[in-house]
Nucleic acid binder design. Structure first.
Lengths: 207, 207
DNA sequence: GTCTATATCATGATAGAC
DNA sequence: GTCTATCATGATATAGAC
């Protein structure tokens, strides 16, 4: 988010870089590598070469391999949370909100399946401090969904046996998209989102 | 399954070992380590010491660390498949079958969450040959569930938008149990199984 | 079948020139 | 800020005694 602005603005370059340049390339390289092979199977040499740097070049921008993981995990969690908050806030009813949440969340897990895998499966490779920070974001994400389910039960739109358990099952469906999604398949992220919005409604509706 | 019988039967020992002895201890040690820390983060030294062996002792029983992973992954997939086949075969209707399948499958992912994590998340660390072998088992597992959903649609008990997509979502809920389950939590595997049997029925039932 | 000892190599990270 | 060179460590796997 905050650009370091260590280089002067380039009038001749019309493509703006979202974060300061090579650091951003390194994050993208690390995201690909971590998602494809896992944190521990990824070497700093691999990350460096994918970003076009020497092995030592990484450490100018990040103090460790775990620091790269943390940045990706934190940004990924924040993006997911912000999307869910927006989806929930823009809805006129719990039913609409749940459809928006499930559609958005599952679509995100398909479109950004690399970051999503890091978010979901590499949590345990963070340092204890970083784990704590991310845990706070996870609680926020859970709360957004749980509040919608609670609201729907209150209005009578939903009927569930247990709110926290149902919330977890809803998130499980969306989260698991990142495990099986493959960009080669025919289903588009948008279609997945629509299907999971329907499935989410079914889960909170007794026949 | 097949005991090597390299040691004579011990009349004084009343506890029978399912597989030949230390090999079994090594598999259990590897299962714990792989599930807790992941395949690549686990060292052969770690596995050996958990099994009470020296680092070299592993290689008498398994030719490589990946061989341990393959044994665990294959046995885990086979166990899951056999359970689903039995659950499906013992049911009198698609509704009963789906309840049995979802209850069994999600309960298994809780009770055996260590093996389940290896099954679900370490697939990519198998050699290409072993991946192919396991892929065959995965297709069998998918077919069991898909057939039940198809049968339920045929009898009119179920109403789904798309059979393969719904099958996948059903499995996602159960599979994801292995990700969040923690033996410390209050919910028992049996309670999880019951809850997910209900949720599975909701997914195939339109209001 | 298990051990001690070790070969061989890759890893994360650093030093210091440019 | 990037490089080349390298350190220190720890990895998988093997050799050979017992």
């Amino acid at each position: 988010m905050l650009s370091t602005m260590s280089t002067p603005a380039r009038a001749t370059e019309d493509r703006a870089d979202p974060t300061s340049d090579t650091a951003h390339r390194l994050l993208e390289a690390a995201a690909e590598a971590f998602a494809d092979r896992g944190f521990h199977a990824t070497t700093t040499r691999d990350i460096a070469s994918r970003a076009g740097l020497s092995p030592a070049g990484v450490y100018v921008h990040f103090s460790s391999k775990e620091e790269l993981l943390y940045q990706l995990s934190r940004e990924g969690h924040e993006a997911a949370r912000d999307m869910l908050v927006a989806a929930s806030a823009g809805a006129g009813s719990p039913t609409e909100a749940l459809r928006a949440i499930m559609g958005t969340f599952s679509r995100w897990h398909a479109e950004h399946f690399r970051v999503a895998r890091i978010v979901q499966y590499e949590f345990g490779n963070l340092t204890p401090e970083h784990r704590d920070a991310v845990l706070g974001l996870r609680k926020q994400i859970d709360a957004v969904v749980r509040d919608v389910v609670t609201a729907g039960v209150a209005t009578g739109e939903f009927s569930v046996d247990d709110v926290p358990d149902t919330t977890l099952a809803l998130m499980s469906m969306a989260v698991d998209v990142a495990r099986w999604y493959d960009p080669e398949i025919k289903r588009t992220p948008a279609a997945i989102g629509e299907a999971y919005a329907d499935l989410g409604i079914r889960l909170v509706t007794a026949r």
